[in-house]
Each structure stands twice: as structure tokens, then as C-alpha cells.
Computed example of a mutant assay.
Amino acid sequence: MERADSINQDWKDKVSNHLQVGGIETSVIDNGAGRGTRIAWINTGTGLRFKVVIDRAMDIADAFYNQHSLAWLSHGGITYPQPFSDKGIDWLRTFGGGLVTTCGLTHVGGPESDEYGDRGLHGLISNSPAEIESIIQPDPRTGRLEMSITGIIKETKPFGPSLELRRTISATLGQPSIRIHDEVINRANTASPHMLLYHFNFGWPLADEGTEILWNGKWFPRHGEENAKIFKEGNDFKTCPAPLESHLGSGEEVALIDIEADIFGDSVCGLHNAKLGLAVALKFKKEQLPWLANWQHWGKGEYVTGLEPSTHPLSGQAKAREDGTLIFIEPGEGRSYDLELEILTEEREIEELLLKVKVV
């Protein structure tokens, strides 16, 4: 895999328009359930290209490396934002899958109700459009290889809570990686509860029979050992199986992982498909996102595994409030989150990833 500094010498005096190599191109979907939705295609010039859905919290839908799709897309795909899909499990009606869907900003987990209000599955933010603040294009002729798109997404109402997500998605020409930098700021005059989860969804051909699911840490089944069929000691739950009859309809399982971190505080998880010679490594800060969920749903025609870094173990706001783990952001204060997803194709890089997550 060539790196940006070596490729850059070839670009000089040969490229008129940076889009010949890579960059950011915005447009609007004009057909189907997503009609009117703003998107941005980002092309890194390495074979990695991905679609940012500006009107859906700047989440990432389609993502490809060369001819290989990385993300799982639901039957519905991209839909126009529906901010009042916030009751019960209505969130699923507009869940397009995609490489990453953001959950939060004040609740993550199943629907619940208490004296503090009613909260639907996984919160409100993914049905909220962004106000674009900037788009910075690369300029290979001057040596500027960085590109980014920054937007502001709000979860707000009078009397609070009023949280603002300032998201920057960036990439570098010649490097097959995606960087997400999020800042969550409380714009209200009272403290706000805060929960956040990044719902990364991987599908075929990256996720396929024999693909290794990579993570390391203490884990437990979300709904208890007595209800687990996949996440049991002795089972090979880190290898993607063939589609399962037991996962038709709503069949699924989730493991909650207290993910390990290296000496730099970085946690790493991912997938490795040896048949494709391709791995995806997802890196984030343990201090920022101490938990990881591994969602496995191997239904026929609905075949997906999710790796989901989060602030809480899918506990929901009520449980987090009860056990004292609920985060509160004071007025004017904020919290930052940094994630990087990198595509690996060189044998040495893949071996290093496997060693990091202690795959045997």
C-alpha cells in the first residue's frame, strides 16, 4: 500500500482538479425514502470511500474499500430524518444500518419511562440534521492532503436539556482511514445527563463465514447467561458463522465488554477477513468510551455484526442514574471523543492487529 508522501510526488504537475485523486463531494438524494437528504461522499484516493449523511447527524452509511463493501445496510437504507421517531422502538423504523449510526446524546439502550421522562430506543440524535460549519478540501498541488467536514447537530428543547454535537469527520489523501472527532457541549443553564454510543455495523463481504471478530476484555451476555446461546464460555463467538435459523426475525445476541486498553490508553477492536486479505481496525480512547458492545444478528438476508464503543454498557439512563454512573455535563462544559477506523491489507499490519487483541 502506497503512502501519501510517496504518491504526492506523482501528483505534482499532473493533476488539474483534486477530485481526480480524491476529496469531498456533496449532493442531495432525489429518490426513494431518502429523497431530499443531504450527503457527502468522501474519497481518500486509496480505494476507501464513504458516504456521510449530513441530515442524519453526519453518520456514515455506505463505505467501500476497492470493490468490497464494509458496512451493513438495512432493508430501508437511508431515510429522511424523522425527529419524532422517539417512542418505544420507533428508532428501528429509520435505522439504515450503515458504517456508523450515532446513539444518544442523553440516552442509550432500550425504551424506558420514569419521573424524568419517556425515552425511546437509543435516543434522538441520529434523526437530527447537521448545520455544516466547514468543508475543507485537499490540495495536492500545494502539499495539503487533509480533508474534513464539520457540522453542528443539536438535541435541544426549551427548559433543557440542550446538547450540541460538533462533529468533524476527516481523512487524508493516500491513507485508508476515517477519523471522527466529536465535541458534546451543554448549551443549557442546567446540568444535562449524557450517554453516547457509536453503532458501527459491518456486513458482507467483510463480515462473512470465517471472518474473525476482534476484541479483548472481560465480557458478559447482555440478557444474562441463562438466555445466551452464542455468548457462552467455550463457544467460538469471535468467528462469523453461516446465517442462523434462530436469528430469523428479531433473533440476536449482544455481549457487553469492559474492553482492554494499551499503555497509551487506546482500545482496539475490528474484523479480519483472511479470504479477502483485509482487516478493519477501530481505535478509540478507553477513558472516553470505556465499554464495547458486540451485536451479532446472523439472519438470512439480514447478516450483520456490530462493534459499538460507548460511555455505558447499554444500561439506559434510568439504570445509570440509579447506579451512579450517569454522566452529567455542566452548563457551558463539554466532552470530547476521538475514533479512528483504518483499513489494513499488509500482512505485517494485520499480524500486529491480531497481536493487540490477543487472537489465538
Rank of each mutant, 00 (worst) to 15 (best):
D258C: 06
E322L: 10
N227Y: 06
S246W: 08
T311Y: 00
A261S: 12
H272D: 05
L292N: 04
A261E: 02
L278P: 11
A320W: 01
H312T: 10
A242C: 11
S267G: 07
H272W: 06
G277V: 14
A242Y: 13
L276A: 03
L282N: 06
Q296A: 11
A279F: 04
Q317I: 13
S310K: 03
W215Q: 06
E287L: 09
P205L: 01
H199C: 02
S310W: 00
K285Q: 13
K300W: 14
L289G: 02
K285W: 08
W215H: 10
Y303K: 10
L314T: 07
L244E: 08
D258H: 06
S315T: 15
S246T: 15
I257H: 02
K232Q: 14
F202R: 03
K283G: 05
E226Y: 10
R321A: 11
T239W: 02
E209P: 13
I259T: 02
G234Q: 08
D262K: 05
K300M: 14
C240H: 08
G249K: 08
W215L: 10
E260D: 14
S267F: 00
D236M: 07
H272T: 03
G210Q: 15
L256M: 14
A318S: 10
E287H: 09
S267W: 01
K275Q: 15
N294L: 13
I257T: 03
D208M: 06
N216L: 09
Y198H: 12
G234F: 00
G316E: 03
N216I: 13
E253W: 00
G217F: 00
K285A: 11
T211D: 05
L244T: 06
P243H: 01
N294I: 09
S310I: 07
E253H: 08
L292R: 06
G265Y: 00
F202V: 11
K275F: 10
V268N: 08
W298E: 03
G234H: 09
A318Y: 01
F200W: 11
S267N: 07
I230G: 08
A242N: 13
L307H: 08
T305I: 12
P205G: 00
T311N: 02
L314A: 09
L282S: 03
L289A: 04
F220R: 11
G316Y: 00
W215G: 03
E308I: 05
W215C: 09
P205F: 00
S246I: 14
N227A: 12
G210N: 15
A242V: 15
W204I: 12
W298C: 12
L307F: 00
S250I: 11
W219I: 10
A279S: 10
P241W: 00
Q288A: 15
R222C: 09
R321H: 11
V304R: 02
I230V: 15
H223Y: 13
W219F: 03
C269V: 07
A320E: 06
D266Q: 12
V280L: 13
L289T: 11
G270F: 02
V254C: 00
L256D: 02
P309W: 01
F284P: 14
F284L: 05
T305C: 09
Q296H: 07
L197S: 04
A281M: 08
E252R: 12
F264E: 13
N216F: 06
I257C: 01
